[in-house]
Design a protein around this nucleic acid. Structure first.
Lengths: 308, 308
DNA sequence: CACACTTACGATATTCGTAAGGATT
DNA sequence: AATCCTTACGAATATCGTAAGTGTG
């Protein structure tokens, strides 16, 4: 037995029209072919569904019984197929992304806006989280992908490089280095440095690439917004990657690039589960991110321009 | 697009097993053939439903979405097909029959008992009604068939002869004709005759075949049970067909056949709608009636034996 | 290298359209 | 005679199983 949507559709068409020739036309079939579909259905069910003479076509008692359920059934089938088509065409769907706070606040919203314009039916979710929580959410399938740095354990994850993010010195306008065109790490000796928490990828990038022992760590906070306030209050300076510079557009703050030879960089990646395909909507989002990645990397110039 | 039950079943099998070879075996297909079914489904939906490497088979996001609805859908399909099979096999169904009161009380219950034993799942309905209401119910499709006589208007109806029913004289044991082996209509002159109502087929048969002007009509009632009482009270005699004789098994009543040459008969038919097929259950009932018709026709002997 | 999915390919079955057949009004 | 469903039949398509190919652990 193998009931098909085509048979159901033909049955309903004939039950409505009570006329093989018309029902066949509406089904885009020749009348004999249509007849064969009905016959195959009757044979599959083992019972005649229509009484037909050349002048009259009518449902048999069993036909009526079938007719009670068939429309709902076909409707369910077509609803399901329709849903799938909507997913494929991205008229519907969901994309969940995890991103480091710096990206979640700065670059990603612009991507979200573009994506929403392209696919207004797709529901977007954004989880701003520190590096490790980002990776956990990807690994556990809570999000489709993350935009983050590399973590300690990247097993089961697949990464694609997005950009490299240079670091900058943030200081108050009256700081001794405020008007340098660029600074060197050696110039920062004995400066009071305001750090982000240890869960932060910014902090981790810094620790991995730099010897900060010559600097004094004055404070450690969790949010960049807080850093702004602390610097303004004269409590120290900070080193942050380019992606976060929009936090520091302030008349009394200065942003000074680190010189080439003491350049520190944070590498950012798009992270997703290994060997797992993305949903159609997520794949479209992924594609958009990769296409737009030039708008955040190589990284520095653009952000400087934005700030000026 | 033509979704089929086979595709759904294969999909669910694979979603459960996550293994083409095993799922193929359980589907009684070779693995490549099974693979082709899955591919045809994916092609029909325009989206991959399974991520497969040689070592792992897993649902894609779209596959999961499909999986949310597919089991219910397949279940509905199989439920419908199952229902149809039950109707065909007469494990379920309905049969509604209309019958003249004489048959509804006497012969038909025995048929119902036999039918119920054969098909305990089929629900039987019996409408005992006078001739014209019987025919109306058939014509309007309220019942599958009727067991009745011929009416004035038989258009749209199809009849099959069931039996002929002889008439008998019913009188009290102390009546002058009580011990005759048979009586002639002429012997009934000036008798007081108890009639049934004009809607009754018994009355109509009598009127059509006999000149009753020599007899006095003393009373006219609607139910045979009442006739019994009236005869016992000495209010007259009655003429009734053989099928009703069980009403008159009473020590003080006598049943006397009418002689051959003044024989009156009531013809009984199975009546159904013209050009309309019966439901499977009704067809089985019809067949049983026709097979058992010898147990009521030619009519007389048996009833006489029963009465003795 | 062994297991597992895909591709290739020939055989069979199904489906389709055209044309002829048969029944009903 | 006209209408309309069924049957007949050849062509295109789909489905199946066997066997070879490919890729992954």
């Amino acid at each position: 037995m193998n009931l098909s949507a085509r048979q159901l559709k033909a049955f309903l068409m004939l039950a409505e029209e009570r006329h093989f020739t018309r029902a066949a036309q509406r089904s885009h079939l020749t009348q004999p072919a249509f007849s064969a579909v009905i016959q195959s259905l009757e044979e599959a069910l083992g019972v005649r569904l229509f009484d037909r003479s050349t002048r009259r076509v009518e449902l048999t008692p069993e036909g009526w019984h079938f007719y009670r359920s068939a429309p709902r059934l076909l409707n369910d089938i077509e609803a399901l197929v329709g849903e799938m088509r909507e997913l494929v065409s991205k008229r519907r769907g969901k994309v969940a992304v995890a991103a480091l706070p710096s990206l979640a606040a700065g670059w990603l919203p612009r991507i979200y806006a573009k994506f929403s314009a392209l696919y207004p039916g797709v529901q977007l979710t954004l989880h701003d989280a520190l590096l490790e929580p980002c990776l956990v959410q990807v690994r556990e399938g809570e999000v489709d992908m993350a935009i983050a740095a590399l973590g300690r354990d990247m097993s089961g994850l697949e990464t694609e490089s997005l950009c490299e993010d240079r670091f900058y010195l943030i200081c108050r306008g009256d700081h001794r280095l405020a008007n340098e065109p660029e600074v060197d790490l050696t110039m920062l000796e004995n400066e009071g440095l305001i750090h982000l928490g240890r869960g932060s990828s910014i902090r981790q990038s810094l620790m991995a690439q730099t010897d900060l022992s010559k600097l004094r760590t004055t404070l450690e906070v969790d949010h960049l917004a807080t850093v702004t306030g602390l610097i303004l209050a004269g409590l120290g300076v900070s080193l942050v990657p380019g992606m976060t510079l929009f936090h520091f557009r302030h008349p009394q703050l200065r942003i000074v690039p680190l010189s080439r030879h003491s350049e520190i960089r944070r590498k950012l990646y798009l992270v997703r589960r290994a060997n797992r395909s993305l949903s159609q909507a997520a794949a479209a989002f992924h594609e958009l991110v990769m296409r737009e990645r030039s708008s955040l990397g190589p990284g520095d110039q653009m952000d400087i321009r934005e700030m000026s």
